[in-house]
């Protein structure tokens, strides 16, 4: 929570083709590493993924923007920006964007991504950061689910 009362309420990712929601997180701080690890594999198999952010503000914002960066070993490999502009006082808002798979052969192999991929999501009003989230470096373990299944047997 910042002085503008900016707060991310939830983040949701879904496969556009099947509409299946495979990741949902309430609030800004909660990170569930195991689910995220498994998520990467699922993500890489989708042709397109829709990510929805729901966020609220107390006081109005004049120049709100979202900046989403993907980092490989600390280097930005993808950057996406979206300008909202005005956000109403006391409002809850949502934004959903679609990302497309670069296609087989054009993507980093999962082995390389494993443990090296980070996402940074930043909400900015003018040049002032109102909300930021940095995910941990994620591990991609394709047979994670199988291993988990074995462990729980």
């Amino acid at each position: 929570m910042t002085e503008t009362g900016f707060k991310v309420e939830s983040i949701r990712m879904r496969d556009c083709a099947t509409k299946k929601v495979f990741f949902q997180e309430q609030g800004w701080e909660t990170i569930k590493p195991l689910r995220e690890m498994h998520l990467e594999k699922a993500l890489l198999e989708c042709e397109s993924v829709a990510t929805e952010y729901t966020f609220s503000v107390d006081t109005e914002l004049e120049d709100l923007k979202l900046v989403q960066q993907m980092l490989m070993m600390g280097n930005v490999i993808e950057e996406f920006k979206f300008e909202f502009g005005f956000a109403m006082p006391g409002s809850t808002n949502s934004f959903e964007s679609i990302i497309y798979s670069a296609g087989k052969g054009n993507m980093y192999p999962p082995e390389l991504l494993s443990g090296n991929l980070q996402t940074i999501v930043t909400f900015v009003d003018g040049d002032k950061v109102v909300g930021e989230k940095i995910s941990p470096r994620r591990k991609t373990v394709p047979d994670m689910q199988e291993k988990q299944d074995e462990l729980t047997k």
Partner: peptide, 17 residues
Amino acid sequence: DEEITSVAPTTGFNVKT
């Protein structure tokens, strides 16, 4: 092309690509 669920009144904006 989303599944239709009940929605709460919008107090701000919803933007979708």
